[in-house]
Amino acid sequence: MAEAAPSPTGRIWRRPPLISSPGLRWALYIGTIVYLIAAFATMDINWQRVAQGWERGQRFMSGFAPPDFTTRGDAIIEGVLESLWMAFAATIVGIVLSIPIGVGGARNLVPKPVYAVCRAFMAVSRTLPEILVAILFVKLFGFGTFAGFMTLMFATIGYFGKLLAEDIEAANQLPLEAMRAAGASWLQRLNYAVQPLVMPRAIGIAIYRLDMNFRESAVIGIVGAGGIGATLNTAFDRYEFPSAAAILLVIIIIVLGSEYLSAFTRKLVR
């Protein structure tokens, strides 16, 4: 090999920009800033109104203090139990139903038509806000917890199914190939090369969904789907703000509890 020429020093290096064309790059920067300014300009903030509102808001908030747990104590306990039941049943049934749909939404496991149908169902379920579905189901099944249960279950299918499908697609594909090479059937491949890989995350998601369903039950109760939401709504309707405050505190405590429970369980199943 010939003697290499000495490498010159002092050469300039900078990280190449993400968008290489300078014109396009600056157009994007300036466009974003102009758009943000224009967007804020359309908001039309009336500072006088805000000042008045601040006072009203304070009066409203002070109406909540002190929280009153006793006057409507029985109704609160009943509402909480209803909501817990609703959330729990909807989570369990929803997850059981979402497993076939989620598996069907994983491109690496099923033929294209099945995939398209399952993905479409999940998209519909995730797009419709719970409150709209709840209004529909209250019309269908009448007031009460059954409408609430159906609403939360429907939402759970879309949510859990989608995350399950994404998880299956993102999991390591090699075990699946190995099981195929060994002559395993489709169900056996599912049981050996998919289930163990997605299980820990699925359990975490399930617990999170339980927590979501409980919180959501407080919202859909307002349109008549039973549970703690209905109790909350009644309290507001009667201007019983101290009772409403008590209900909100109970909801926060239960959600906080499920937060710790889910963190603990996820640690267990790693």
Partner: peptide
């Protein structure tokens, strides 16, 4: 039978 580069075991 097949043997793989990345072993292709089911880790869990």
């Amino acid at each position: 039978g097949m043997i793989f580069q990345e072993f292709a075991l089911v880790d869990r």
